[in-house]
Design a protein around this nucleic acid. Structure first.
Lengths: 345, 345
DNA sequence: TTGAAAGCGCTAACAG
DNA sequence: CTGTTAGCGCTTTCAA
């Protein structure tokens, strides 16, 4: 059996990958011992481990994940659903891979795109029987979520309390936006516009933070401009502001991408930032940190979000009967050059 | 498939997903018949198919991909490696999902991130034994590529001829940039700077297109600014231009993101586009199409790239002995408002 | 169209 | 540490 396997590997231009048996044969041991080595399970001595790993390296062996997934009782796989167009999620994924690796779990990615909605992505992911699902900034209805959580542990990240039996991890949007508004109020702004995120994840909380803080300070809120977390909707908001006869002295956008679109559009129209108008964002994603945006924003700690999401998912896999938890992390204002005192009118 | 992708009628808090046997039992048929239905294989009558699918829907059944992958002789899975931070790749993934679905193949995604290099992503992907690997804008050394192509068919997308036994699909970078340069020359520009992509995929070809076209027109090339396809490196290039005592009348950037960073930085410095300086990009990704960027750029047809990449991968899976092919698609200039005639000095 | 039997590569339980 | 036995959920082959 094993010698035949070697022959195949060497002759064909695209060789079939070796199996655990090939590795075992090479080091003169049983498949089971090799299995123990690759699972990091107790048993094999350090020398044995090294010998096995070396042989595997020579052969180019890697455990077959399909076989492993099929056989394992407890899934070590976690499905992650992402929207590829939101800057913040990229940072999150990065952190998630790191954390998952450290904890001995494997991440499987599925993308939600304009032509491929949540339901499709979820359905495909379920085919792999992951131990849990992590939804990053996904828009799932309460109904679908209910059905989903009956089948598999679900952790929703970055979109507030998920309800419907799902765990959730997010930052306190109301508190974050409140910090941004207070920062502007302290600088002396009273006329502060807001760019809303509509039905996007977390948008409702953030808007509430704006309204409450303005009210508490006795400032008149508005105008409130509609948006959808995209750069273009931020640019639209800017155009609507420019169409008014007078600009507010500051704008709070409910995410960085809209803030960037808004800022750049204002700049193109000859409006200086922060001299003529101050702008804040939310997320502290890559765009906020670009030198030519340099946006005062509310930082979500992506490493922490990733860590909490994964530990929650893993805890839930171990005990499927436990209550759904809602973790709310506290965001932090990061002041950059897009905000300043209002200039006298 | 139906809209009720998450349908299930299970009672336990997190129910085990049903198997093919459960579906078969429900409709009083054999597992094999159910299997035929789910594989869209000939045999079962239309009525049988419908009955089976309906039962599956009620139970919330989906075929176990791990089992399927393990047993199938010919893999229907294709691994796609992506860098999550390049705007153009997002469009590409979108198209790929659509094309793969249409052709009956399943895509598995793995992300290359700053903390997770190509080798790691490739290694993980190989564990799933996909039929082929598609590398989107990846940076793989000739050595690694050689080892890789010995194990599995590889298609490199968007980075020119891959060599080392890999198929490749890309657009003609030299021709594309040549079009951009000719467009500027026709407008009357003679002083045209270039923002290079360094070691990034496709950068060498694009640069050659710039140099050759300038030479052919008898124009003196330069300055050539180094970059790495990131917004920030475009911004850096802008700062370096601004530090000179006089600006060129036009800048050709080797991708859209650098063009965007450059444009915005120039605008912040009070330089008008296209009045003071014209700017072109490459890719026609989402950023180029933003209303406040509205960049003249070289369009890569992501749908076509996706289609050719997948058909190539699939052809190679069917016949592993066939020669590696290098497909070169012709890009097309898209003129927007970031270019115009040079203003008299 | 269906049924029976085999087996993909691995993990898991147990006795040595 | 090894060997044995079993089986995850599916596809495949062959025979009915």
């Amino acid at each position: 059996m094993s010698s035949e396997a070697f022959a195949v590997t060497e002759l064909s231009p695209v060789g079939r990958l070796p199996t655990m048996g090939d590795v075992a044969a090479m080091v003169g041991m049983s498949r089971q011992s090799v299995s123990l080595v690759f699972r990091n399970a107790p048993g094999p001595s350090p020398e044995t481990r090294e010998k096995v790993l070396k042989a595997a390296d020579v052969l180019g062996y890697r455990p077959d994940m399909a076989a492993r997934m099929l056989r394992r009782r407890d899934s070590q796989h976690i499905g992650v659903l992402i929207t590829v167009s939101h800057a913040f999620e990229q940072d999150l994924i990065d952190s998630m891979y790191a954390v998952a690796d450290e904890m001995g779990y494997v991440l499987m990615l599925a993308a939600i795109t304009p032509v491929r909605d949540e339901a499709q992505a979820v359905g495909e992911m379920l085919g792999y029987r992951p131990g849990a699902l992590i939804l990053v900034g996904a828009n799932v209805t309460q109904d679908s979520m209910h059905q989903l959580t009956r089948q598999i542990p679900v952790v929703q990240v970055g979109a507030g309390d998920a309800g419907a039996g799902a765990d959730s991890v997010s930052t306190d949007g109301a508190a974050g936006i409140a910090e941004a508004v207070q920062h502007l109020l302290a600088l002396g702004h009273r006329s502060i516009a807001y760019v809303d995120g509509g039905t996007m994840p977390g948008a409702a909380d953030r808007k509430a933070g704006y309204l409450d803080t303005m009210a508490a300070a006795g400032a008149i809120p508005g105008p409130i401009l509609r948006g959808d977390y995209s750069e273009e909707s931020g640019a639209d908001a800017a155009r609507r502001l420019l169409a008014e006869n007078r600009l507010p002295t500051a704008v709070v956008a409910s995410n960085d991408q809209m803030a960037a679109g808004l800022m750049t559009t204002l700049m193109r129209a000859g409006v200086s930032i922060p001299e003529d108008i101050s702008v804040t964002g939310y997320d502290d994603s890559r765009v906020a940190q670009l030198s030519y945006i340099d946006l005062t924003t509310v930082r979500q700690d992506s490493t922490e979000l990733a860590k909490v999401s994964l530990t929650t998912a893993i805890a839930r896999m171990a005990d499927t009967h436990r209550q759904a938890q809602n973790y709310v992390l506290t965001p932090r204002l990061v002041v950059r050059s897009s905000t300043g005192a209002p200039s006298p009118r």
